[in-house]
Design a binder for these strands. Structure first.
Lengths: 197, 197, 197, 197
DNA sequence: GATGAATGAGTTTTCATTCAT
DNA sequence: TATGAATGAAAACTCATTCAT
């Protein structure tokens, strides 16, 4: 049964790979189930064995993206003291985003999905809020955390999309610098990152 | 021929009114041309005499919304000195938004349109940038204005959508206060607004 | 506008004609909307301008069939006294059925529609019950009319389908005779019908 | 190998049980092989080891139903003299039907199967005809037995479905009484049945 | 300018059936 | 025997768009 399990998993991966490829080529708006299964060289019905609807496979891609970001930051920045930790986490976000530019545009840009954008912003805001409550972020401001989390989520996604759509007119370091200065009102720590994955 | 002109204008208004009503009922995703013309009690083909596609009529609604905001602020706040002017303009934004809660959700929420959301954010960012360049806004930060404008646009739209979707958990004044404090890092001016439109 | 009306009516007739033809060729079970519109040489979507679903067009054919039977009997048998009137009406039913043999099999036979069969039996039973209540039929039996009407409807449809499926092993006159004798327990009136439609 | 045999039989019974349950819940029209195997907690492919198609398992249920009716009547009514035997057999039919109301509706009602309905009517008519030829039924009418058998089959099924769909507005005894009076034109024998199985 | 009938491309979705394990 | 992943044919349905009146 293990062989069968692995086979099934393999099919799932093929589908996600195809969906990801197509996303870059035709954008979310142009994505279809037929397109995915054709690209994956699988039968049409096979899609429904693994996902219930189009958004489900796309959301799983977004989750993978989010996981990769979280893993890239949380793990490595465990012991870095605040606020340098914030700076580095943002830097990592933009570094990762630099590699996934086209995906970001495809998912959240003008040919993207309103539903998934909102969902991702909800998710992101929840993460921010959780971090703030746990004291991992500190704004030093006398403003409710839900407000701050929403604002940060909106600002961050917008910056990522704008930056990605315009083919990264600033470097990742510059983006992190500017964000740091805007949020913390002080010069960014002199730092060249934490080394890439 | 003036009679004909007025008639034409009247038809256009009927269509926009119907589109606006439907937007609140079925959301952008559920909007159809047939739905609009049925609601407006006009023939199907009539739509095409006034708009080329669905997004065009919706965008015209967004423009109206934007115009109403701009008119509400720019006109009345001409002579108010900075930074109190910023505070009041934001207050007005949230006051107007309070009246158009459902429209905001319908247009930019999860059942809204990715394309129009991006377009509106582009537009908003352009307005912000223009204001900053003209010195009407001043951040006091050593950060490029395009970055700041994008960030503000993303933050603002997200706050509006979140606030509208959650049925305005804070008052308009509270929202303006929090935004002011976050951006300017000082207590908001003690002010009860500029009177309603 | 009258021209357009007539044109629309014409399209509707084409669709019904095509549906009727196909019914004979492929049976109800093989009927599809695409099949109908192809046969009628009309666009696929045109179907939905005139009918909501497949069963609707088929039911309209059944209604036409029922109407033609009713017209064939009620009108011409107005003044014939009971029970000869019953005999003649049955005779007409079988005579009409002889002309529509294949339709009966297609609609109500083994490749037919359970839903429409039940619906037609309901309809037929209602007609019978109405006639009985109005004293137009009289069984002379001390049995509730709803029971009798249902029983007659079931018996009649089954006889028609069986007779049609087996390529009318008896003549229409024989069928009427047998039915008459079974129901009224007396020899059928000596009669050769009332002339064909 | 007897163990294997019993196991196989057990699986078959599970499938039939599941099919029967589902029939009552979703009707014939909603029946699917996946539904049956899911309900039976068996693998999809297992179905095909026992039946060739959907109708086959359903027909086996109908056969079981018919067998139970036949067993309930023929066996116990062997020595009852005509026409009281007819009366009792009908009574038993309605008594059994009272217990299987929902199955009758599911199989032969508006959400049932035209094919299986016709097939069951054919079967029933054949039984009737056989009985008539063997002199077990006697109509006293000078009408061919095939005609009578078809008519009776149609009437009987329709009465059963109508009665079951309308939640048995008359009692089983009343149904048998009415049927007896309609067919034999004399009061039903004073009898309260033959005791339940 | 206004109308609305006709079009048909494009997608989703369901399911019986096969087959390798 | 039993399993269930993979297949793909088959249909329904929606809707933007065109066009003759």
């Amino acid at each position: 049964m293990n062989r069968s399990e692995r086979r099934k998993q393999q099919t799932r991966v093929q589908l996600k790979q195809a969906a990801n490829d197509l996303l870059l080529e035709v954008g979310y708006a142009g994505l279809t189930i037929k397109g995915i299964t054709d690209r994956a060289d699988l039968g049409y019905g096979t899609f429904y064995l693994h996902f219930h609807e189009l958004d489900e496979i796309v959301w799983s891609l977004i989750q993978d993206f989010a996981d990769s970001q979280i893993m890239a930051t949380t793990d490595r920045l465990q012991d870095v003291p605040y606020p340098r930790r914030e700076y580095l986490s943002w830097l990592v976000v933009f570094e990762v985003a630099e590699q996934t530019r086209e995906s970001i545009v495809a998912l959240f840009g003008k040919r993207g999905s309103a539903r998934l954008l909102q969902r991702y912003q909800d998710y992101l805001a929840a993460v921010y809020e959780e971090n703030m409550r746990a004291g991992r972020y500190s704004s030093g401001l006398n403003v409710p955390v839900d407000f701050l989390a929403q604002m940060m989520a909106g600002a961050m996604i917008r910056l990522l999309v704008w930056w990605a759509e315009n083919e990264t007119p600033y470097s990742a370091v510059q983006m992190a610098d500017m964000l740091y200065e805007t949020v913390f009102r002080e010069p960014p720590p002199d730092d060249q990152g934490v080394g890439n994955p």
